[in-house]
Design a protein around this nucleic acid. Structure first.
Length: 698
DNA sequence: CAACCTCGT
């Protein structure tokens, strides 16, 4: 998604590789210099560097367009923070941001990407030994901390977009506090030694103090400052055009209808500029699209130049790209979007925002092991983020479809993810870092006691922890090394014993991505036929296996075309012909390769059970015993662990066949409580394969 | 019978 510029990384017309022979090179450099000088942050460079030198922890509040993400790392480099091979690390919540910002900064520094400036995200590492400014995802930095607990190659770490409070950012904030303490301690011990051998950190590197910079959009600077013992907070001005925010007089009973009315009101009464409408999901977006088309027909012919477009994460990339193209002359675009348009992508041309005030949010109930997707009011921060989207290119207007007094009642910010998710992965990682007291760990927002207890229990049942909560060796260590849900890591270790590791590698790689079949509601005959061709009535896991294997066989047959770009093209063609989501399958193949590398490093021999699907299903039962469900008299299912009454999700290949007993991977409540990704098992296997959990009695 | 907000190792 190349044109999805984010934050301060304005998409640039400049080429990525500097070309010294180009006649326009001089003016290009001049433009970059001028642009950098014009950024609000440029005028406070000296002050910022002084504050970083004085303070070990600094909070920087920077509004959109301040230039903090691209400029501060360059200031630090110029001030000498990268001497002796040290790096400045900058973490971002999203891959696309880490990648585009790094490219932009490399351009500004006039160096090829991967030298002085680089980025590291999963499956794509452009850094080298000469990299000094390293942009990465928060998850990637967290993985680095597991390997090098002192993060000894960094002199400064900048946590960007900290206000988003992803689970990775929250764990990092706590971990970095500890790293800073540990490194200072190491330095002090060294200086107090009399005859002193030099104390060294991980991998023999010299330990020096770590500078920490937390960057956030406004509102909650005080939260971070207090968390870091009253750390100094600096404010950097942004550069945004004013946005006129308008509210309704009365609450709306039907926000979809209110959105439609507002869209047409803008179209008829406001001057030119595209409209961005925030809705909750695919169904709603597609129905509003139809309604806009319908109502357009009732307008006089010269007023019909309104072009509805849709964007949401599940849309194939080619169709996503369409919203970036300018509307034809005379037309006004109306982009119907989920919250993908809130932070992840920036659509050019938007002058009007219609904010329904609601969002679909995921929560997790640790007791039921169930996720929920609910339509809930946005937070104030979210509402501000949405209205800001109208002021990127000029003064704008935002229509909030609720009264102003309702805005005042909203939560300041969205609940941090760490309070809404399954903690088993986070806890396993902390345990592998030797942090045993999870309840006493210094999180900025503590997860509930119940959520911690439940995750500890799950890890114990999976064999990752001992009965007294210590890391089980070597299984727990091995599981912590694998970048995936502990249940799947456990499945790989078991598969090694069941001689179906090859099959399980494919399975977990496929389970790690969603929507293999691009649109489950796709009703075209050929799409249904194609899907039926892959579908196994034994289980969705077997279906995924056959999709992956058939693509492999197809690629094998056309092996002579072996350049990477060609393989990619052939793969996309195969996916299109078979109505499979190529983005998902590409991701699954990358995951397979990476995880296979890890298990081979652990000394596992990747063996296959061939066509012995019985043994494979037994392994699934042994792996996923915590999530089993049994059919009831009325055709519904009872989840054995929680006792919940659940239904098979319509996208499952087992939706019609309704077997007596299944294991499943996901329990999610939307309109009903649905189980997804399931495979038929023999109920007797549970007692046989997980006797510690299931008694042999009925 | 009836169906997927958004990210990430």
């Amino acid at each position: 998604m190349p044109s999805m510029a984010q934050g301060e990384a304005k998409s640039s017309v400049l080429s990525n590789k500097p070309n010294p022979k180009s006649p326009s090179r001089f003016s290009m450099r001049q433009k970059i210099t001028e642009h950098r000088k014009s950024l609000p942050i440029a005028s406070v460079e000296k002050r910022l560097i002084e504050e970083v030198q004085k303070n070990d922890i600094l909070i920087i509040v920077g509004e959109t367009g301040s230039g903090k993400t691209t400029q501060l790392p360059q200031f630090l480099f110029n001030a000498g923070f990268c001497r002796e091979g040290k790096m400045v690390g900058i973490s971002q919540p999203r891959r696309i941001a880490a990648m585009t910002v790094a490219k932009r900064v490399a351009e500004e520094c006039d160096v090829p990407l991967g030298q002085k400036v680089g980025y590291s995200v999963r499956f794509d590492d452009t850094t080298s030994s000469s990299t000094r400014l390293k942009y990465m995802t928060d998850g990637f930095l967290l993985r680095e901390a597991l390997v090098d607990p002192l993060l000894s190659r960094y002199s400064v770490i900048i946590v960007d977009e900290a206000h988003e409070r992803t689970v990775h950012t929250d764990v990092l904030l706590a971990l970095l506090k500890k790293v800073q303490r540990d490194r200072s301690k190491a330095v002090n011990e060294r200086s107090s030694e009399t005859g002193g051998g030099v104390l060294r950190g991980c991998q023999g590197r010299k330990v020096s103090p770590l500078k920490l910079i937390i960057m956030s959009a406004s509102l909650d600077a005080r939260v971070f400052s207090e968390y870091y013992g009253g750390a100094k907070a600096l404010h950097v001005q942004g550069r945004q055009f004013p946005v006129n925010v308008l509210y309704t007089v009365h609450p709306e009973t039907d926000y979809v209808d209110a959105a439609l009315v507002t869209i047409f009101q803008i179209h008829m009464e406001e001057k030119e500029g595209d409209i961005l409408v925030f809705l909750t999901g695919q169904d709603e977006i597609e129905s509003v699209e139809r309604l806009v088309q319908e109502r357009l027909q009732h307008l006089p012919e010269d007023k019909r130049m309104l072009l509805p477009m849709t964007i949401f994460a599940g849309l194939p990339s080619e169709q996503q790209m369409r919203v970036f193209a300018p509307a034809p002359i005379g037309f006004r675009k109306v982009v119907l979007a989920t919250n993908i348009a809130e932070t992840s992508i920036t659509i050019p041309g938007i002058r009007y925002v219609v904010d329904t005030g609601v969002v679909k949010a995921r929560t997790y109930d640790p007791n039921k092991g169930m996720e929920s997707l609910d339509v809930v009011p946005t937070s104030k921060a979210q509402a501000l983020q949405r209205s800001g989207r109208a002021g990127r290119e000029g003064p704008g207007k935002c229509f909030r479809l609720y009264p102003e007094r309702e805005f005042e009642k909203l939560e300041d910010s969205t609940k941090p993810e760490i309070k809404r998710c399954n903690l088993s992965n986070v806890i396993l990682q902390l345990k592998s870092l030797g942090i045993d007291d999870i309840g006493g760990f210094d999180f900025i927002d503590k997860p509930s006691r119940g959520a911690i207890v439940k995750a500890l229990e799950e890890l114990r049942l999976l064999g990752a922890l001992t009965d007294d909560g210590k890391l089980e060796k070597p299984v727990g260590e091995q599981m912590a090394r694998l970048p995936m849900d502990p249940v799947y890591s456990r499945a790989l270790i078991l598969a090694n014993q069941f001689n179906c590791l090859e099959e399980m590698l494919i399975t977990v790689a496929m389970l790690n991505v969603e929507s293999i079949f691009y649109d489950p509601r796709e009703k075209r005959e050929e799409a249904r036929t194609s899907r039926n061709h892959f579908t196994s009535v034994e289980g969705d896991h077997l279906t995924y296996l056959s999709v992956y294997r058939e693509l492999n066989e197809f690629l094998e047959k056309r092996k002579e075309e072996n350049s990477e770009a060609k393989v990619d093209k052939i793969m996309r063609k195969w996916c299109k012909d078979n109505f499979v989501n190529s983005r998902s399958l590409k991701h699954a193949r990358d995951t397979y390769r990476q995880i296979r590398g890890y298990v081979e490093q652990m000394g596992f021999n990747v063996s296959s059970c061939g066509n012995d699907m019985l043994e494979y299903r037994r392994c699934l039962a042994a792996s996923f015993f915590l999530k089993a469900a049994q059919r009831q008299m009325d055709g519904t299912y009872r989840a054995l662990e929680s006792g919940e009454i659940v239904h098979i999700h319509p996208i499952s290949g087992l939706f019609r066949s309704k077997p007596e007993c299944v294991v499943f991977n996901e329990l999610m409540q939307t309109t009903k409580k649905y189980i997804k990704n399931l495979t038929r098992i023999d109920p007797l296997w549970l007692a046989e394969l997980a006797p510690h959990h299931y008694k042999t009695e009925e």
